[in-house]
Design a protein around this nucleic acid. Structure first.
Lengths: 138, 138
DNA sequence: ATAACCTATGTGCATTTTACATATATATAT
DNA sequence: ATATATATATGTAAAATGCACATAGGTTAT
């Protein structure tokens, strides 16, 4: 094996840079839970509310699929509402498990905010104590 | 209690609840860039540094593959270091594109922090935007 | 009436991201 | 020689995401 030759494998650079959007994983789930904790709602309405949390150009499929999965997970419940004009709506309610889940999420989010604070502290140039600097910049 | 019974009760959820960890997508990329901006480094060392940012039980494969992808994207460069004892290290350096990318990430992250602030404002019970409310008890 | 449109929910599929297991190679200690 | 620590990498599957498309009830204009 020749290690130095493998260095050439790194060609083909300058692709399009991938998504630089800072958005947490499963961010949609806590946003839906938070909305449902305020009042019961349905997909089409929740979609509009979610746009306030970074889902401005949300695809309906994503939301509806997420809602069905959340019901399977037991954090929301649903029932059809047909008592009014227009297409039937699947009305969602948050469960006790869902409230606990939301609380857990909030704690995790709080923790993560501290991690991001660390990131910014390093980014803006105020180092938290660490090992020796190779450039020895005084 | 009977866990199985409770799961049936919850509407037939077959799966565990999905990750409740608050962590943005591609979080590893800016963390690596930030580390490399301080000093050049290599995978094995970067893995240890990344643990301070929520990657405590990181799988090596994830990191190394991310690094190679980052090089393809042109935000880092690498070369083998064989001048010392032990296995060869692929030393990474941040590029100018990488610095710009990091700056862009930081801006996005800042924006995201505001979104999370909104989330917490709703979560803790205080209203989001002003819709002529004056019960803001501070 | 019917066509066009808005509301409302949903599936299919490909891509991207992530997780986990496994493989390879070099040096050092025993 | 074998075990261990260091160091990098691939193979595969699961999960998350994005985009396109499908279905259907009701309202409005023609």
């Amino acid at each position: 094996m020749n290690n130095e030759e493998r260095e050439r494998e790194a060609g083909g650079r300058e692709r399009e840079l991938r998504g630089v959007e800072a958005r947490p994983r499963n961010w949609l789930v806590p946003v839906i839970l938070l909305s449902l904790r305020e009042w019961n709602s349905y997909g089409y309405e929740l979609m509009e509310r979610a746009s306030a949390f970074g889902f401005e150009a949300m695809n309906p499929g994503t939301l509806y699929r997420t809602l069905r999965q959340m019901e399977k997970d037991g954090i929301v419940e649903s029932s059809w509402e047909t008592s009014r004009g227009g297409p039937a709506r699947r009305m969602y309610t948050i469960t006790d498990t869902g409230r606990a889940y939301l609380d857990f999420w909030a704690k995790s989010l709080e923790q993560y905010q501290h991690t991001m604070d660390n990131f910014f502290r390093l980014y803006t140039g105020r180092p938290l104590q660490d090992k020796n600097d190779e450039e020895s910049s005084e």
